[in-house]
Protein backbone atom coordinates (compact mmCIF):
# COMPACT_ATOMS: atom_id res chain seq x y z
CA UNK A 1 0.00 0.00 0.00
CA UNK A 2 2.54 2.60 1.13
CA UNK A 3 5.07 0.71 3.28
CA UNK A 4 8.00 2.28 1.39
CA UNK A 5 7.15 5.68 2.94
CA UNK A 6 8.54 4.56 6.33
CA UNK A 7 12.11 3.76 5.13
CA UNK A 8 11.91 6.84 2.85
CA UNK A 9 11.12 9.01 5.89
CA UNK A 10 14.04 7.46 7.77
CA UNK A 11 16.23 8.19 4.74
CA UNK A 12 15.35 11.90 4.94
CA UNK A 13 16.41 11.98 8.61
CA UNK A 14 19.64 10.02 8.06
CA UNK A 15 20.55 12.20 5.05
CA UNK A 16 20.25 15.34 7.20
CA UNK A 17 22.25 13.56 9.93
CA UNK A 18 24.97 12.62 7.41
CA UNK A 19 25.38 16.26 6.33
CA UNK A 20 25.59 17.47 9.96
CA UNK A 21 28.10 14.76 10.93
CA UNK A 22 30.21 15.45 7.82
CA UNK A 23 30.43 19.18 8.55
CA UNK A 24 31.44 18.41 12.16
CA UNK A 25 34.08 15.91 11.02
CA UNK A 26 35.62 18.55 8.75
CA UNK A 27 36.11 20.82 11.75
CA UNK A 28 37.78 18.20 13.95
CA UNK A 29 41.46 17.46 13.58
CA UNK A 30 42.46 14.19 11.97
CA UNK A 31 45.04 11.88 13.53
CA UNK A 32 47.42 10.59 10.87
CA UNK A 33 47.45 6.82 10.46
CA UNK A 34 48.57 4.31 7.83
CA UNK A 35 45.20 2.55 8.09
CA UNK A 36 42.51 4.65 6.39
CA UNK A 37 39.76 5.53 8.85
CA UNK A 38 36.15 5.16 7.75
CA UNK A 39 34.35 8.29 8.95
CA UNK A 40 30.95 7.96 10.56
CA UNK A 41 29.45 10.19 7.86
CA UNK A 42 30.63 7.65 5.28
CA UNK A 43 29.01 4.87 7.30
CA UNK A 44 25.79 6.88 7.43
CA UNK A 45 26.10 7.14 3.64
CA UNK A 46 25.83 3.32 3.41
CA UNK A 47 22.54 3.47 5.33
CA UNK A 48 21.29 6.33 3.16
CA UNK A 49 22.01 4.47 -0.06
CA UNK A 50 20.26 1.35 1.22
CA UNK A 51 17.22 3.31 2.40
CA UNK A 52 16.92 5.62 -0.63
CA UNK A 53 17.65 2.85 -3.15
CA UNK A 54 15.30 0.37 -1.50
CA UNK A 55 12.52 2.96 -1.15
CA UNK A 56 12.87 4.04 -4.79
CA UNK A 57 12.69 0.46 -6.08
CA UNK A 58 9.75 -0.32 -3.79
CA UNK A 59 7.98 2.86 -4.93
CA UNK A 60 8.42 1.62 -8.51
CA UNK A 61 6.75 -1.66 -7.49
CA UNK A 62 3.85 0.27 -5.94
CA UNK A 63 3.40 2.28 -9.16
CA UNK A 64 3.49 -1.04 -11.08
CA UNK A 65 0.67 -2.41 -8.93
CA UNK A 66 -1.36 0.80 -9.19
CA UNK A 67 -1.00 1.59 -5.47
CA UNK A 68 0.69 4.93 -6.19
CA UNK A 69 -1.01 7.24 -8.70
CA UNK A 70 0.16 10.51 -10.29
CA UNK A 71 -2.90 12.48 -9.14
CA UNK A 72 -3.98 13.63 -5.65
CA UNK A 73 -4.10 11.92 -3.09
CA UNK A 74 -1.35 9.88 -4.84
CA UNK A 75 -2.22 6.69 -2.92
CA UNK A 76 -5.13 4.48 -4.05
CA UNK A 77 -5.62 3.27 -0.46
CA UNK A 78 -6.47 6.83 0.62
CA UNK A 79 -8.68 7.31 -2.45
CA UNK A 80 -10.62 4.11 -1.67
CA UNK A 81 -11.05 4.92 2.02
CA UNK A 82 -8.58 2.24 3.20
CA UNK A 83 -6.39 4.66 5.14
CA UNK A 84 -6.59 2.63 8.37
CA UNK A 85 -5.41 -0.54 6.57
CA UNK A 86 -2.64 1.45 4.90
CA UNK A 87 -1.44 2.87 8.23
CA UNK A 88 -1.56 -0.62 9.79
CA UNK A 89 0.61 -1.94 6.94
CA UNK A 90 3.01 0.96 7.34
CA UNK A 91 3.28 0.23 11.07
CA UNK A 92 4.00 -3.48 10.54
CA UNK A 93 5.77 -4.03 7.19
CA UNK A 94 7.07 -0.46 6.80
CA UNK A 95 8.55 -0.21 10.28
CA UNK A 96 9.87 -3.78 9.92
CA UNK A 97 11.69 -2.81 6.71
CA UNK A 98 13.23 0.30 8.27
CA UNK A 99 14.29 -1.60 11.41
CA UNK A 100 15.82 -4.55 9.51
CA UNK A 101 17.78 -2.29 7.13
CA UNK A 102 19.06 -0.30 10.14
CA UNK A 103 20.00 -3.47 12.05
CA UNK A 104 21.93 -4.85 9.06
CA UNK A 105 23.66 -1.46 8.67
CA UNK A 106 24.55 -1.66 12.38
CA UNK A 107 26.15 -5.05 11.71
CA UNK A 108 28.11 -3.53 8.81
CA UNK A 109 29.35 -0.69 11.06
CA UNK A 110 30.46 -3.16 13.77
CA UNK A 111 32.17 -5.37 11.17
CA UNK A 112 34.02 -2.40 9.63
CA UNK A 113 35.15 -1.34 13.13
CA UNK A 114 36.52 -4.83 13.84
CA UNK A 115 38.30 -4.94 10.45
CA UNK A 116 39.87 -1.49 11.05
CA UNK A 117 41.04 -2.53 14.55
CA UNK A 118 42.57 -5.73 13.18
CA UNK A 119 44.36 -3.79 10.42
CA UNK A 120 45.75 -1.37 13.01
CA UNK A 121 47.01 -4.17 15.26
CA UNK A 122 48.55 -5.98 12.26
CA UNK A 123 50.26 -2.70 11.23
CA UNK A 124 51.55 -2.19 14.78
CA UNK A 125 52.98 -5.72 14.86
CA UNK A 126 54.57 -5.16 11.45
CA UNK A 127 56.09 -1.92 12.71
CA UNK A 128 57.54 -3.65 15.80
CA UNK A 129 59.08 -6.43 13.71
CA UNK A 130 60.74 -4.12 11.17
Amino acid sequence: MACFLVPASEAVITTVAEHIVRSREKNTEEVKSDVPKVHFSEKLGWLNRMLWGGSALLAFEHVWHGEVIPTFPFLTAVQNGETADMLAEMLTAGVGMAVLVTLIWGGMVIASGVITKRSKSTDALGGERS
Binding site: L58, A93, L100, V101
Partner: peptide
Protein backbone atom coordinates in the same frame (compact mmCIF):
# COMPACT_ATOMS: atom_id res chain seq x y z
CA UNK B 1 29.39 -0.02 -8.01
CA UNK B 2 29.14 0.11 -4.21
CA UNK B 3 26.14 2.44 -4.55
CA UNK B 4 24.44 -0.06 -6.88
CA UNK B 5 25.16 -2.89 -4.39
CA UNK B 6 23.66 -0.96 -1.46
CA UNK B 7 20.59 0.00 -3.49
CA UNK B 8 19.87 -3.60 -4.47
CA UNK B 9 20.59 -4.92 -0.96
CA UNK B 10 18.32 -2.28 0.55
CA UNK B 11 15.50 -3.29 -1.81
CA UNK B 12 16.17 -7.01 -1.16
CA UNK B 13 15.90 -6.52 2.62
CA UNK B 14 12.66 -4.59 2.21
CA UNK B 15 11.15 -7.26 -0.07
CA UNK B 16 12.29 -9.90 2.40
CA UNK B 17 10.18 -8.21 5.10
CA UNK B 18 7.33 -8.04 2.57
CA UNK B 19 7.76 -11.79 1.93
CA UNK B 20 7.59 -12.51 5.68
CA UNK B 21 4.36 -10.48 5.87
Amino acid sequence: VGTLCLMYWGASIMWFVDAIA
